[in-house]
Design a protein around this nucleic acid. Structure first.
Lengths: 246, 246
DNA sequence: TCGCTATATTGGTCCAACCATAGAGAGGGG
DNA sequence: CCCCTCTCTATGGTTGGACCAATATAGCGA
């Protein structure tokens, strides 16, 4: 007997689930847009015909999902959030605690997805986007020399995002950002030591991109990624998970 | 579950944030494992020294993060969840939903990602996974004949998830699920009319997969996706977002 | 005009009930 | 002895009231 989802339950979900679904719907059809402010909790409770506590649980759901951001005070409230793939990545990180997600899995997925990204970007990217990538590499190089590790890590990851943006496809940009954020979570366990290699590889990649040589660009990316992967595996980060034995 | 006061009182930030952090910590160090049951809301409220409402918001947070699953009734409660890639995918899907996307963007991204998925699945998929895909197509065919549109749409989209699972890469599975969620929303807006074409194309695809002919399989998928895209564009679905009139 | 204060509005927390659900165990009939 | 049913009860779900904490804004006073 298959789980018959054929019929929706008449008294289906919890009340706050329904509220979240309605807000999601408004988001989808455009009646709510990023930056918009939801009515206050008290007003929502009245409009939905539920108690304020129920509304709060719904809002909590949306906050965790990254759909809204909450502001305190008189002009506060629940505001539709700007798209933030980082939230999604955090969800992945949570899943990481439960599932067995190895560094190999992520590297492999990146290898696949980024191959596409590089190839498409090679065809489509504008001069301006190419310059932005150059600037990014320069900044990483500079920050690395200064020893500004924290800022450097951010700019570092941003390279992948810029590359994904260069495909001109927003879906791809979001997917890439999520993976990049996830990667950064894992890379924390590795520590900083590979800057030189990364920067040099990226400069080679940029040269191929400028020449619109997709094959060479993809090859450079793949070689670099595999090399990086090997270095990580032989480095401090060993297991497929963070160790939980004392 | 130890009957000592295993939890420290919570206060500093928002109270429920602290609660979630503590539970996360217990999960990390192994004092809580998948399948374990958290104390009841009332007991947790007592142990944490907060109200039951606050505990509920914390539990809601953990539920959204996919950390726990809730069960109703006498032996119910909050149970540490088994790993579920679908949970992580929902967060990504939310991020995608906040971005302004056109159908072209999604189709293009699918074309790219699914090309990879098909190719890899062709190499790695087991007989069992192939059979699951066959069963899926059969069920879609049956539901379509019965006119069970709603359930059909779900099973329909599940095809892509099964395919992604066949790559054996959980990251890929999550990425695909995110896009599939998006796709299901769109498919509902478009309405049912393309079933025959889809089913027939999928049967051809499965034949290629069974023969381990990656090139033909990828080609079949790409041809089908482009065709579908054209049909949608000339159909009821016009704008770059779903519009709900009335 | 500038700066401070009062106030209104908002989210954050708490309480004490009640409802709906579903497992568990008691009871009856075979 | 076993199986079915029925009730009992612990659980999450919901309610509506109250108060606290933060904060933007209007209004007052120097």
């Amino acid at each position: 007997m298959p789980d018959e989802l054929a019929f929706r339950p008449a008294r289906p979900r919890r009340a706050f689930d329904e509220i979240v679904t309605q807000v999601r719907g408004m988001l989808r059809d455009g009646s709510l847009r990023p930056g918009d402010r939801l009515p206050s909790e008290r007003l929502l409770a009245e409009q939905f015909g539920v108690s304020r506590n129920t509304v709060r649980e719904a809002i909590r759901m949306m906050e965790i999902s990254g759909l809204v951001r909450l502001k305190l005070g008189a002009a506060g409230g629940a505001f539709i959030a700007e798209p933030d793939p980082g939230i999604a990545a955090r969800g992945l990180a949570d899943a990481l605690q439960l599932t067995t997600l190895s560094l190999s899995d992520i590297t492999e997925a990146r290898l696949w997805v980024e191959s596409i990204v590089v190839r498409v970007a090679c065809e489509r990217m504008t001069e301006e986007q190419l310059r932005a990538l150059h600037d990014n590499v320069d900044e990483v190089s500079k920050l690395s020399a200064e020893g500004n590790w924290e800022r450097k890590a951010i700019v570092h990851v941003e390279f992948h995002n810029l590359l994904a943006d260069a495909t001109g496809n927003p879906v791809m940009a979001v997917l890439m950002r999520s993976m990049a954020d996830l990667l950064r979570e894992l890379a924390l366990a590795v520590g900083p030591s590979t800057d030189d290699i990364i920067v040099r590889s990226r400069r080679r990649l940029l040269r191929h991109l400028r020449n619109r040589d997709a094959d060479k660009a993809v090859l450079e990316m793949q070689r670099h990624l595999k090399r990086l992967h090997r270095m990580w595996l032989t480095g401090a980060y060993q297991g497929s998970r963070t160790s939980r034995s004392g």
